[in-house]
Design a protein around this nucleic acid. Structure first.
Length: 159
DNA sequence: GCCAACGTTGGC
DNA sequence: GCCAACGTTGGC
C-alpha cells in the first residue's frame, strides 16, 4: 500500500464536495502534467491512502484523508471540447490523461495549515513543503502520513 | 497582484 | 538537442 497527497482547490473540488458526492466517491480528474499522470496511471492502486490538500486556500492546508478505490483509467473529460481540460490529442484509442477514483475517509477535526506542517520536524522532507513543488499528486511516506493524521487529531492547547 | 519555480513549446 | 520565450502553479 502506498501513500499520496492530492491537491485540490477548495472551491473547485474541496473535501466538502467529496463529502457531498454520491457514495462520497469521485474521480479525480484534470491532471495535465506528465509526471503526475504517470503516478495516476502506474502507481496509484485501490487501497492506497491519500492526504487531501487544499491549495490556493486561506490557509492552504491538509484537510482530511481519502482512499483510492479505483486505479488509473483514462480521463474522459479530456475528450470533451467543452471541458476545461480538453486535449484534442487524447482519444479513446490513445488516451494520454488518467484519473483515479477516490473515496472520502475522514474530514479532519481541524485543518493542518502549511505553517504548522512546516513546524513539525518529522515532516521536514515532505515533498509538499519543498520550494517550487507544484505537482498535484505527490508521494508521501507512511511515516509522514501517520504523523499528519495523528497531528490532526491532537487537541490543540491554548498557548 | 507579485514573483519564483517549473513545464512546455518551438526555432534553430 | 539547446535554449529563450511563454504559460501555469501556488504561496505570499
Amino acid at each position: 500500500m502506498r501513500y499520496w497527497l492530492l491537491k485540490t482547490e477548495p472551491e473547485c473540488f474541496g473535501i466538502r464536495h467529496l463529502e457531498a458526492a454520491p457514495n462520497q466517491t469521485t474521480f479525480w480528474d484534470g491532471v495535465r502534467n506528465y509526471q503526475a499522470r504517470n503516478m495516476l496511471r502506474d502507481d496509484m492502486k485501490p487501497g492506497d491512502r491519500v492526504l487531501y490538500y487544499h491549495s490556493n486556500a486561506d490557509p492552504s492546508a491538509v484537510v482530511g484523508t481519502a482512499k483510492v478505490v479505483r486505479g488509473g483509467y483514462p480521463d474522459h473529460t479530456a475528450q470533451d471540447p467543452k471541458a476545461d481540460h480538453y486535449d484534442p490529442k487524447h482519444t479513446a484509442m490513445n488516451p494520454i490523461w488518467y484519473v483515479v477514483d477516490v473515496k472520502l475517509d475522514e474530514v479532519f477535526p481541524r485543518e493542518l495549515a502549511l505553517d504548522e506542517l512546516r513546524s513539525v520536524p518529522a515532516l521536514k522532507s515532505m515533498e509538499l513543503l519543498k520550494k517550487g513543488s507544484r505537482l498535484s499528486v505527490m508521494p508521501v511516506t507512511k511515516a509522514e502520513f501517520d504523523v499528519v493524521v495523528k497531528l490532526a487529531h491532537k487537541r490543540v492547547t491554548a498557548s
